[in-house]
Design a protein around this nucleic acid. Sequence first.
DNA 1: AAACATATTAATCATTTGATTAAAACATTT
DNA 2: AAATGTTTTAATCAAATGATTAATATGTTT
Lengths: 210, 210
Amino acid sequence: MKAKKIKQEVDPSTEEKIKNAARIMFHKKGFAATRTRDIAEEAGINLALLNYYFRSKEKLFDIIMLESMQSFLQSVAMLLNNQDSTWDEKIELFVSNYIDFLMKEPDLPLFVLSELRSNPSSLISKMNMKQLLMKSNFIKQFKEEIKKGKMAPVHPLHFLMNTVAMIIFPFIGRPIVSNIGDLKDHEFIELMQQRKKLIPQWIKMMYKPK
Amino acid sequence: MKAKKIKQEVDPSTEEKIKNAARIMFHKKGFAATRTRDIAEEAGINLALLNYYFRSKEKLFDIIMLESMQSFLQSVAMLLNNQDSTWDEKIELFVSNYIDFLMKEPDLPLFVLSELRSNPSSLISKMNMKQLLMKSNFIKQFKEEIKKGKMAPVHPLHFLMNTVAMIIFPFIGRPIVSNIGDLKDHEFIELMQQRKKLIPQWIKMMYKPK
DNA sequence: AAACATATTAATCATTTGATTAAAACATTT
DNA sequence: AAATGTTTTAATCAAATGATTAATATGTTT
């Protein structure tokens, strides 16, 4: 009893060890390039345990993928649903939070988008985000801003695409960006920090009505 | 002699058939998820011919990857080097050309970026793009615009990242974008057409000096 | 046409890889 | 402590997969 508690608290359970290792490997190399043996080694467990706990590589992947999708879209959902902040505050908070999040999970976007390409993946449809979007406080405020004349009329999708693009792209294209700019790691991070303030400014400017 | 010529002109050579099939499959599913048998089938040739012409899956991949990187960066290089157009024209031309290009090769960006993640890939460094960037006419004009007070002072990398991000992201995130916006294929294309005109406008706005 | 070179095929090989099994180790309950 | 249930291990299997081989077909040169 006591031994088990200690194991669960101090040391992650075997199941957790496997999931963590799987997340790391899948995010870094994708489903097809990841061997179950890689995961087992990374987790420091016997290969058979992977199948003992998760039945198959696919099943394990599905779990990781679902969680990844959720955390990837969670920030967007937060933007959409956050009630109590003004428009400008909302944007600033969103950009800053998302960039902070991507600093910790830099492999996540490319992983999600890559795997979404190959898989028909009913996962997206399950999340049915149109509902989420259209009924959101975000859309309401977005339209208000336009009506108040504070923003030029734009299709909300353009706005979303541009915003997410500017946040995510540097992380997706990091090897190329770092090469072109000849950036050391800390210089890249510095640039991302700047973008927390810059992106909201750019957004404000680019949709300014004439 | 005549037979060979006809074969080369009317029907692509076996080597070309393999390369074309490989390009399609690699772009769609990536290196690890693509079987040599998939390529052979797509090309309509015997599996052994793949190794006969290209020695190995890796060698074939390297060839495709190099060509893909080149065409992926070619548009950027064009932006950087184009001599005879004004700043505004340059931007408009670049955005429009790149979007047109991506309509024909929608899988290219995600492929290049994905494979670049796993591979240490000296490919990028071989292209040594810092030289290309710093000595380019683009940088010269960019600095002039800022000096003339037509543009707020920004790090050129931010400018590049934002521009490329807005162009490429919709194609990389197409499944999610299409789901959120509940878009049919033709509606997605319509949005991309709009962006040819919108992105240059946004760019002009967002860097306007106060 | 004979000789030679090139291209193509079917069959097979060797390795990798996801998964299973049967036994052992460990923990829990009675 | 015996019995029972759970977790872990080493060994092994079966299928998938990249690559090769030996034979055949096709084209070219002499």
